[in-house]
């Protein structure tokens, strides 16, 4: 009987330690030697936020910059020309944009859960695209606001109020943000436990956000991301059966997931792995959420034939 709990602890640890090698190069437009700056290499946690890298990136690239005195709040990152949103954790960005194959269940997943090739990103110090990105500040206040509001939104979904997160003590709130900045499980876990186990109530809905590739209405050449979220109760209202990945997708994205048991046209990806449809959604929310409490799930269309 220890196995289930052990397995959960192991899974939690694997997700917490999941990381992606990054190779970050300076945009040619910002580089005084055009394309000859050194790349910045780092192994960075999937759960964490790229914005936390900015101070290090700035000092690394400062000697290569055409305008070394540009304001730090103009900094942004892109992949293949697409600006990377600050509020998306690295793992979500990677699952959405890298085009890499996810890990599949059954055997082969264990061997190849870490990508060996670095993900090649570009850093820019000018021309922040404000239609896509929020301007960050040097103190990190805006990043914190983005994070904490996602925490609150998840809390509201789980409990139907924002009471649990809003009644956290000042120390607990500070500790939560410190756990993000330092990527420290021992700081994160106790606060997360408080959020997931509110006094005197049981959870109502499970915070999942689904990211779909989509075709913009008027422009055929560009693809975009469409975000969908729904009210997903812990159990099916009809049968009180446990909500699984499959039943939730069938409820929220019915045309893509007409079956609750088999994924035909599309598959859900979380933390780089294809989710089996039979997985309990509540278990995922408790064991492998992102730091803001959400399950950010990328929906990937399957190759046919």
């Amino acid at each position: 009987m220890t196995s289930s709990r052990d397995l959960q602890a192991k899974l939690q640890k694997t997700v917490w330690n999941g990381s992606i090698p990054l190779e970050i190069r300076l945009a040619n437009a910002d580089c005084r030697t055009y394309d000859e700056s050194d790349p910045y290499l780092i192994q960075f946690p999937r759960l964490s936020y790229l914005a936390l890298l900015i101070p290090g990136l700035r000092s690394f690239f400062s000697s290569f910059l055409i305008h070394p005195d540009v304001s730090p709040d103009e900094t942004w990152l892109s992949y293949q020309g697409v600006p990377l949103k600050w509020q998306y954790p690295l793992g979500l960005l990677y699952d959405l944009y890298s085009g890499s194959e996810p890990a599949y269940p059954k055997g082969e997943a264990e061997e190849k859960d870490e990508p060996s090739q670095p993900w090649k990103l570009t850093i820019h110090f000018t021309d922040l695209p404000l239609e896509h990105l929020i301007r960050l500040d040097v103190e990190g206040k805006h990043l914190h606001d983005l994070f904490i509001n996602n925490v609150k939104e998840a809390d509201f979904l789980r409990n139907g109020t924002g009471k649990t997160v809003m009644s956290l003590s000042k120390e607990d709130s500070t500790q939560l943000w410190e756990s993000v900045k330092q990527h420290k499980f021992s700081l994160f876990s106790p606060i997360n436990q408080k959020l997931l186990s509110p006094q005197g109530t049981s959870l109502r809905h499970l915070p999942i956000r689904l990211y779909l590739p989509s075709k913009p209405r008027d422009d055929k050449s560009n693809r975009s991301i469409r975000v969908v979220q729904g009210l997903v109760p812990l159990t099916l209202s009809s049968s009180r059966q446990t909500q699984t990945v499959g039943t939730a997708l069938n409820q929220v994205l019915k045309p893509l997931f007409p079956s609750t048991r088999t994924a035909l046209e599309a598959q859900p990806i979380l933390h780089g792995a294809v989710l089996p449809l039979s997985t309990s959604l509540e278990d995922l929310v408790r064991v492998t959420p992102y730091l803001d409490g959400w399950l950010h799930i990328a929906i990937k269309m399957r190759h046919m034939g």
Binding site: Y79, K215, N222, R223
Partner: peptide, 13 residues
């Protein structure tokens, strides 16, 4: 502004 998708991820579409 719609959030654009990268070439790498949109090939299959």
């Amino acid at each position: 502004a719609e959030a654009p998708l990268t070439m790498a991820a949109s090939m299959i579409l």
